[in-house]
Design a protein around this nucleic acid. Sequence first.
DNA 1: ATTCAATTTAACCATTTGGTTAACTACAAA
DNA 2: TTTGTAGTTAACCAAATGGTTAAATTGAAT
Lengths: 207, 207
Amino acid sequence: MVKPVSKDDHKTEEKILEAAKDEFMKFGLYGARMQSIADTAGINKALLHYYYRSKENLFDKVFEGALKRYFDQMDVLEDEALSFKKRIFLYIDHLIDFLEEYPHVSLFIIKEVSVSPEMFKEKMYSTRKSRGKKLYILLEEEKVKKTIANIDTQMFIINMQSMCYYPFIASPLYKTIFNLSAKDWKDISNVKLKKAVKNFVERTLNI
Amino acid sequence: MVKPVSKDDHKTEEKILEAAKDEFMKFGLYGARMQSIADTAGINKALLHYYYRSKENLFDKVFEGALKRYFDQMDVLEDEALSFKKRIFLYIDHLIDFLEEYPHVSLFIIKEVSVSPEMFKEKMYSTRKSRGKKLYILLEEEKVKKTIANIDTQMFIINMQSMCYYPFIASPLYKTIFNLSAKDWKDISNVKLKKAVKNFVERTLNI
DNA sequence: ATTCAATTTAACCATTTGGTTAACTACAAA
DNA sequence: TTTGTAGTTAACCAAATGGTTAAATTGAAT
């Protein structure tokens, strides 16, 4: 006797969110198709509207989740037990591993921010508050301020993040231009990139 | 007597292309609306199909133009009269000025490449050929190879380009996070960024 | 077994959107 | 003046798409 498939293990609501995540990440709010989400989730289109009122609302839910994960990898920056150098090096490792897993997330968030910066601001603050985290701790900590006193902190953050994020955004371009296999690219975008960013940070901060 | 407006100064075809450029850059192939393009160009929607067969075709034309401009700023890399350092510094200046003017172009190209890498490859090579340019001259020149012998050339290019391109892609994010006025951001993304990238190049290449 | 609410579906609907058609206009050549 | 061609338009059309509805199904509580 086969055990009857007593409902799904994962509730429909979850499946929808998962399918929506893929679709929205790849195609954005405009490009995403409700039918495609329903198909991926293996359910009827009307169910989308049953669980999530509208396309915009579903998108919001996906966006919130992405934003949460986006900030999650910053936790290590607050681990007081580690030295500044270790913290920032771990942050780089986590960030690049994270981007390998979710290469679309940064662009997804950027696009959303450019559409409605106010909404993003709200969501950003509420996410920070609810998890008790400081976002740009690098800018705020006294001992760090001392360490990097003679460099432009904002520019430093922008440079470091650029080096981490951009390769994943532009990976189709680089794969094409450099004629790279998936394996080659993985080596570049993980091993080599981590080394390069750490090197940059080391030299810039003199640590 | 008012001189009769003997046809438009700019032909309709041009106006369409200009309007299409704006629309496609901002919203991509999916998000762009033919009606919106027609409105911006101040003409009837049917004219779009009269001059450019279909949406895809119009998009292609815009894309080709963007690709051309995208490669244009690399000309300076081939000026044999300049030292390597001057060439690469000028390239940085040109690139960042260019990005200030067309902040959407890099993302636009990346998105298009990810949809159809083969098409991009073709267009890339034909653009290079028709203008007799080498794209990644940095990788090919003997004396440069010598200069940067002990660093990973691909990684270097990726790092440098990341530092240049990403801030413009992520500008909505940074403006929001750092609470910057348009003026503040311009200073960061032009003056300070140029300095930072040059600094990075100088230290990395030991020049 | 009945009830009742939560879940799911097929069939629609209204709007948007890319694209077409047939007619009209301007203007240069014959 | 007539004719022919390029340019332009309003009015449509078919498909796609987000969204709605009313009916069916399920499953737990009574």
